[in-house]
């Protein structure tokens, strides 16, 4: 369980997040939605303590995040930023192995190598295992980065727009992979997404943010036309088709 209480965070003098309260449960996939600049990425960074909160607390399984060392935190929370440096010279294996860094004392153990190997197989990356990242397609390299995050064996997995710039097939593949991992490994997965329909298809809970505040949160039932209009300032129509909601633009 991950609990956020009265969280205030930002950069320099600016407060981006204002007094957030949230509760996350295991085995569930959470989608954070909202317009650009609403504080979605800042929230993920604050949960991973990449930026220090200005106020409030975050608890992971009842433990205050402030009291956990960065190294130990890396064993419990994994984070995939929206953009990371391209390092085309690293092989797929080495990249995923890097996720074991918080667990490695001197050199990787048999267990570390096994975890990497199993992830390579689970993610269908066998034929690329020793290729360099620079030689992979966008979808493949994104899978590698997600595998690296999962190899940390975290309780909480944070992903900032993991399917941007990917084709529809890869988007579906990666999100269903994440959904499966969330349930099988019994972790909390929090994903920043822009595509409302993908969010509805894969997420269990939805957190809508606007101007650094939680605008509304809950399951699929909270999503309606007026919510989307209020949060994104666009007019949409929501269509029910075979028991699922679809958001379509209405001009």
């Amino acid at each position: 369980m991950l609990e956020i209480k009265n969280l205030i965070a930002g950069y320099g003098e600016k407060e981006v997040l204002q007094n957030l309260n949230l509760l996350f449960e295991k085995k569930a996939l959470y989608a954070i939605l909202g317009p650009n600049g609403s504080g979605k990425s800042t929230l993920l960074r604050t949960i991973d303590r990449i930026i220090k909160p200005k106020g409030g607390s975050i608890y992971i399984s009842g433990e205050d995040l402030k009291k956990i060392s960065h190294r130990n935190l890396a064993k419990r929370i994994a984070y995939l930023p929206q953009k990371s440096n391209s390092t085309p010279f690293c092989t797929v294996f080495d990249t995923i192995l890097l996720g074991r860094k918080p667990h490695i004392t001197i050199e990787p153990s048999k267990k570390d190598l096994n975890i990497v190997e199993n992830l390579i197989i689970e993610f269908g990356l066998e034929e690329f295992a020793f290729r360099k990242i620079g030689e992979l397609s966008g979808g493949e390299s994104q899978k590698v980065l997600i595998a690296r995050a999962i190899s940390q064996e975290p309780e909480v997995l944070l992903l900032d727009e993991p399917v941007n710039h990917l084709d529809p097939k890869n988007q579906l593949e990666i999100l269903s992979l994440l959904k499966r991992v969330t349930v099988e490994r019994s972790i909390i997965t929090i994903i920043v997404l822009h595509d409302l329909n993908l969010a509805i298809q894969f997420a269990d809970y939805f957190i809508f943010m606007k101007n650094g505040k939680i605008y509304r949160e809950g399951d699929q039932n909270i999503i309606d036309e007026s919510l989307i209009k209020d949060v994104y300032e666009i007019n949409v129509k929501i269509i029910n088709h075979e028991g699922r909601k679809f958001v379509v633009n209405a001009f």
Binding site: D48, H70, A74, A78, P81, N85, Q152
Partner: peptide, 20 residues
């Protein structure tokens, strides 16, 4: 050495892997 490897991926990734 492992910290340098993590830093290759940028500050955010390195921080999230526990690197100061």
């Amino acid at each position: 050495r492992w910290n340098f490897n993590a830093l290759l991926w940028g500050d955010e990734v390195a921080k999230s892997l526990g690197v100061n």
